[in-house]
């Protein structure tokens, strides 16, 4: 564990907490893409499938973190699609999730470290996570704006994988550890946030709201 991965995971936890708080406090999921949250839930379940297969006692923080990620993302989907369904902006959340899931699954079968079920599921989860934020970014571009709290959520969510890139540089240099699939997908994922990061740093930090040129 190094400082970059630690802050990366904390940033990821913060993102999940910010989104839950936003939906719970405002009792609304306006401006939040339900599809992105579903894709994240699928990512966590397929990536941490080992939790279900051979359930080992919760002996370390890693297992606890995995359970937190899975339960929080499933709970977020429950809030969006059931509890606060009336506030779900379905017609703006219109990116076809199949266009993300099918290519990720296909690519996972073609490019992977080892052709076995667990490894393919993990690879699928990595590829899917790289593009999972697209429906959310698409929704913001359609509505033309993002609530400030949603911007903070996106900033934390984007920072998590950006910090993981620093973690991979660190591990390459000090532990000669390389996981090409995770690195390439992580770089693609972070690149997708670039224009949002620019808007966030130039606008939200100055207290303005993000309004996209419609």
């Amino acid at each position: 564990m190094n400082i970059f991965r630690l802050f990366g995971d904390l940033s990821h936890l913060a993102a999940i907490a910010i989104l839950l708080l936003k939906i719970w406090k405002t009792r609304s999921c306006a401006g939040v893409s339900g599809k992105t949250q579903l894709l994240f839930a699928v990512c966590f379940i397929t990536r941490y499938i080992d939790l279900f297969l051979h359930f080992v006692s919760l002996y370390n923080t890693e297992k606890v973190m995995k359970l937190i990620y899975i339960s929080a993302s499933v709970f977020t989907c429950y809030l969006i699609f059931f509890k606060f369904k009336a506030t779900y902006d379905g017609n703006h959340d219109s990116m076809r999730a199949e266009f993300l899931i099918v290519p990720a699954a296909g690519l996972a079968c073609l490019i992977n470290t080892k052709f076995d079920a667990i490894e393919i599921l993990w690879t699928f989860s990595i590829y899917l996570e790289a593009v999972a934020i697209l429906p959310q970014l698409f929704l913001i571009s359609k509505t033309g704006e993002a609530e400030t709290i949603t911007s903070h959520y996106l900033f934390a969510q984007g920072s998590y994988r950006a910090l993981y890139i620093l973690n991979w540089i660190y591990r390459y240099h000090y532990e000669s550890h390389v996981d090409t699939i995770a690195i390439v997908a992580g770089v693609v994922q972070t690149i997708l946030y670039c224009d949002f990061f620019y808007l966030y740093i130039t606008k939200v930090v100055k207290g303005q709201k993000i309004v996209l040129p419609a």
Binding site: E62, W122, N167, Y172, S176, H177, V178, D179
Partner: peptide, 10 residues
């Protein structure tokens, strides 16, 4: 560089 197949990252 050694490839650690064990997934030790979240």
């Amino acid at each position: 560089t050694k490839y650690t197949l064990r997934k030790d990252e979240l």
